[in-house]
Design a binder for these strands. Structure first.
Lengths: 202, 202, 202, 202
DNA sequence: AATGAATGAGGATTCATTCAT
DNA sequence: GATGAATGAATCCTCATTCAT
């Protein structure tokens, strides 16, 4: 009991500190020294709870994946129309990307796979569950007649996820450019882009 | 000019060597030593031509952006139907990503901005020109009646670019997963995904 | 005594585990963590029974010294001819070196001396006893007329011991070399070397 | 010219500093920091001249092997009687062991073999040459009628070398003991031991 | 113009040991 | 008596960059 609590606290503190630093300086530029110092424990103690810097990073990424899973679940389970749920999902994701672009990007891309490690098994599972929820969500769109019947669901899941990520990433990276060049807020742009993704044509 | 020639040669040699190494071992794992050695000049000489390792990287990224601009130009100028040119464009980009995933990813995302530097001005310009070409391409789609008239062109340009990138990036990163989980080749997946992007719905 | 028994058990378990690990990975590469884990007790408990990693090592070395004492005793007490007992002694030692080269080397050389410590007193005593047995052995050789009468016994003891050790150590370290360079097995070499040591000339 | 000189100086300084420290604190306890500091150059510079701590160690060992080779050569070439040259050789080696026991011991035992490395090739060669000189020395003893005709020369070389080393090592390690227990100086002991080795019996 | 030489600053990880409970 | 937890101190090595020549 005691033990579990202490582990919980240490783990959480390290992750908080690391998140802040990674976000501010990036992965490479953040040293394990920095993290331990900000956490307020000794570096060696930190290594008791996290076997490596990489695992700290991956743990945070995992957390964000869990958040995305939650969003996907809401989209699949939610009550409103398919469109409403679609935009809700998109902007739920946007919200996370805005707050923590680095880790959301980390969410995509290859995870160093060592499937013996508990953490990576978990990451894989969460990815699978998310796919499943998005699949449910798309099926509900088909039932509502808002999505073509003949669509291939799993490719659609992956495609949807990667397009949304791509759109958001660029919207954030190029926000300034959009404003300057086309006098368009990020919000406005994203609305249009998500609409195009849904309706196609392009 | 003797001088201009010498600069040309050195610059090109360094970039060639660096590209090979970055591609093989990644940015961090490639040392300036490695690059100079493979180039066949001294490290100090290399620093005469490139002020930093980062600039070497960015120069290569710039080259890839030029290649993408070329692709965009072909899409805008090409003869076939809009659909044909669309798929051609997509797979032209895929081709580059397959051959040089590292730099193509570098092509996206924030470039370390130091707009005083000539290089970054150039990168910006190429980006602009690419946007312009994609815009022309989309306009040609409208003329052909294949793209909605009421579309907002520039957002569409950005959206198209970012979705395509997102789709390709994930297709490459998750190729193994797609094969194992859905028994789908990268090729097959990409075809479906690009079609969905074009036709929407989703 | 409950207590004595517990101590006995713990001590023995730790030594067994440590021996296995030291033998497999060497002293430096074996961590106290490793030892405690293999023993099945906590590191802190281990520190109750052994004040330091070094003492664990020395305890094992001590055990090997006891084994050598046993060999020496057999040589002194044994029935056969002096030569027979000489070769028996040599190959008894060889046998131990082959099985446990690490600790046998540990047996030679300076032991970290802290003669207040019980352990080091014990190590000293065993050394003394071994010398005594070898002395008896040599005396028996004199009686048999196989060893010069005028020999100075104790120097001879030390000399014999150090030469035998030197010969065996090198035979093991350079086994490969002997094979490749002179096509001689370790066994063959050792036979010749022990003979030379006995007969001199060289 | 300049270059060679500078390399020479740096190399020599590092080796001197390292030798002093290794001798004083041992290999493990001496840090690369220590060595660089004592040398008076930066650690990075040191790494320009020596790729690793191990190579620094091995370089010193190599130097001692060269010294032993010199001794062996003198024994083979020398003018006096076989016995005189024998004792001279033994005490030449003793002299080195007394001054630098650590490296002389390093001279024996397995060298981490990476025969691609220039250094290790050199070490091997020196070993070979030394064997050859000792062989010549023993042959001269045969010619003088001081060594048995039927002796197997190369095993004798190895045996002689390993016994001498064993004898000296122990004489140094147990000097105090010899004095206290048998009231015998190291010198006296060594004389007797080398005599026994030569004449055998034992 | 070209470069050999030098280095400051860091960086992830390990481990023997202690101590409060 | 047993131990979980915590850590200070170290360690080898790397590398981008500068500068005198």
């Amino acid at each position: 009991m005691r033990k579990a609590l202490r582990i919980e606290i240490h783990t959480a503190s390290v992750l908080m500190a690391a998140e802040e630093l990674f976000e501010k300086k990036g992965y490479e530029a953040t040293s394990t020294d920095d993290i331990a110092k900000l956490t307020g424990i000794s570096k060696s103690t930190m290594y008791v709870y996290f076997k490596s810097k990489q695992i700290i990073w991956d743990s945070i990424v995992c957390k964000y994946m869990e958040m995305f899973l939650e969003d996907a679940r809401k989209a699949a389970d939610g009550k409103g129309s398919f469109e409403d749920r679609y935009y809700k999902l998109c902007f739920d994701i946007v919200e996370k990307f805005e707050a923590h672009p680095l880790f959301c990007k980390g969410t995509l891309g290859k995870i160093s796979v060592d499937m013996d490690q508990e953490l990576y098994k978990k990451i894989y599972d969460i990815g699978e569950q998310t796919n499943e929820e998005i699949a449910r969500f798309i099926r509900s769109g088909i039932e509502e007649g808002k999505v073509r019947k003949d669509i291939d669901i799993y490719p659609a899941v992956i495609m949807m996820w990667s397009s949304i990520s791509g759109i958001i990433t660029m919207a954030i990276d190029k926000e300034e450019y959009l404003k300057l060049r086309f006098n368009m807020t990020r919000e406005e742009y994203l609305n249009k882009a998500f609409k195009m993704l849904l309706e196609g044509a392009l």
